[in-house]
Design a protein around this nucleic acid. Structure first.
Lengths: 343, 343
DNA sequence: ACACAAATTGACAGCGCTGTCAATATATGT
DNA sequence: ACATATATTGACAGCGCTGTCAATTTGTGT
């Protein structure tokens, strides 16, 4: 059985192909009565437009590309589900493209992907969203894109939480617990988010009247292992921290490991805070105080914004979504002693 | 600047469009010298075929659909990366489709997806890979697919580890530690894998001469919360287990939580085993003994097998990949006392 | 009722590629 | 050298849709 084509629907509805096409694409200038006839025929025949033909003739693919680099699975999963959902409603598909090349080769890699897949737009996740050369290239080629990244200027479309404010919110419970020596584990500085969180860490200290001590800051790369190594370094210092704010949950998990290996108790001997609220955060023991990022919502919003740009309905803009401070056991002042199995 | 088309390349190489097409698609019957000329021209002009035109004319999309339901993000991430990699080499893209409808509506949902996306084949992850009605439908419509699921008959293409043997391998260290009362937390019975693991649990007990006790078995749904609830139920029993084998890592994490909340020590008071080896497994404290599934490899293999089926080079077959037993702290007999922060 | 503008509809070319099949070049056997 | 088989190449239609633009219908003001 051959698939139903536009022509079949047109015949059945007694109109031209073009009119059916108009209805399918929601174009204006179709009489209501005509539209109804056509919709009926479409439904009766269970017609679905052929994506390939549409994209060839219309010079668009109805596909959005999701570019990702070294992100955590949980983050990507949420973002991609959000984007899929928003895209699905508008009959846009999502094509993935992991950029596994070195940072410098990303633009060329993406160029190939664009040519081949013919996606109509891109959603960029960190750290690719902060690759300046890539952004320039996309601007030059006139490819619409939305970045999942904190805006650092009001150029282009971005979706993010207010990183500075969120990191400040994370510092608050640590300060409230009376911590004076709060360690910080940085993320890769190529991530805009990492920079904001670091800035916010410093200014929160300042606001609280605590002197910034560079000895309490270590580098990390968002991985569990780097968080563990960073914590070990901090513990080995002359005057180790009583709390550690890791730039993401994975690294915070590493901190917990390092602490337990040293025989420390959490939160009794050390408060630990993360960032992101991936599933891991509540599965750890003790569960992790962190900032919840609405990752799915961010993916959804990014797709919506992108589709509007593609339709020319809207110009680039910066969306700020709400984060949420989630206080859990790793910074609790109550329930001490629950940090480990009682003897 | 217009994009380079097949015709441009043909002109430059001094051959017909069709010949270039042959080279691009690796079709036979092209003289080596001709092929070289064409390849040169392609390279010089940086030509990339237009996917839409290819799929319209050739009646295939060069897209593979990845169907997933309620899977763990980490699992999906690995599978999808493996599939992407294998697909990329053959210039096939990957389109995601989360099936978020009720199990009964999946076939209809997939039907719509197929019509619209025109994917050339499907990779099915659990539990969708075990949806019999869907499989029938796909067979009827002649859509090639590969299931990521243990084969329970030698029909169709599957990729999996030897579930029965792997679950047996996981039981061994528990038995070796001398455990006589080993609890089991089942996965959803709609997953073929869950059934195998359960079978293997029972037969391992039998082989070890231990009487099967239904009171030591509880239901779970692969989620952290279900694992925690199941463990609480087991602990509340008259004669609680000294070891728990959870059907996946997430549930094992729940077991650890429940145990710690009861003040138990791990592995001193309770050995815990999981299955999958998602990143969580090593990030937990104590780190989790588990079976490593080569998820990325499974995705890769599934894509390769699917492409061969599409090309007609191969018939459906069952691939069994190697698993690996990873013994970590949660079942260790050494290092007792490291299960929690020392006092 | 008429001229004109605006809304609605349709005819048709062509997007860039592949399948078909015929044309031509080369190899093989006698 | 010739006939035949085989390998290589090319011409061309057409995949199912959308963009363009012209044709037709409807509405509006006088």
């Amino acid at each position: 059985m051959r698939n139903i084509r536009l022509e079949d629907v047109a015949q059945k509805a007694g109109v031209s192909m073009k009119t059916v096409s108009r209805v399918v694409n929601g174009e204006p200038n179709v009489r209501a009565s005509t539209q109804e006839k056509v919709l009926e025929a479409i439904k009766a025949m269970n017609y679905r437009p052929n994506a390939s033909a549409r994209s060839l003739a219309g010079n668009r693919s109805y596909l959005i590309g999701l570019l990702y680099g070294n992100v955590s699975p949980a983050y990507l999963f949420e973002v991609q589900n959000g984007a899929l959902k928003a895209g699905n409603m508008a009959h846009y598909g999502l094509v993935l493209h992991p950029c596994e090349t070195a940072e410098d080769d990303v633009p060329e890699d993406v160029r190939g992907f664009l040519k081949q897949s013919r996606v109509d737009g891109l959603i960029l996740t960190p750290p690719i969203s902060d690759n300046v050369r890539l952004l320039h290239q996309l601007d030059g080629e006139n490819i619409p894109y939305v970045r999942l990244s904190p805006m650092d200027s009001d150029v282009g479309s971005t979706v993010s939480i207010d990183e500075k404010q969120a990191a400040g919110a994370m510092m608050q419970p640590l300060l409230d617990l009376g911590h004076k020596r709060i360690g910080f584990i940085k993320g890769p500085m190529a991530h805009g988010a990492s920079r904001w969180r670091y800035e916010s860490y410093k200014s929160s200290l300042e606001d609280a009247g605590i002197r910034f001590d560079p000895a309490l800051v270590t580098d990390g790369d968002f991985s569990f292992d780097s968080g563990k190594a960073a914590a070990e370094k901090l513990f080995a210092g002359e005057n180790p921290p009583t709390a550690i704010f890791a730039c993401n949950d994975n690294m915070a998990a590493g901190v917990i490991h390092a602490a337990f290996e040293k025989g420390m108790k959490i939160p009794d001997d050390l408060s630990v805070a993360g960032f992101d609220d991936v599933p891991l955060a509540r599965q750890l023991w003790p569960s992790l105080t962190t900032i919840h990022q609405p990752m799915r919502g961010m993916g959804h919003m990014a797709m919506q914004q992108l589709l509007m740009m593609i339709r020319g309905e809207d110009n680039p803009e910066q969306s700020i979504l709400n984060y949420q401070l989630i206080v859990r056991a790793s910074t609790s002042s109550v329930g001490r002693g629950l940090s480990r199995p009682p003897a």
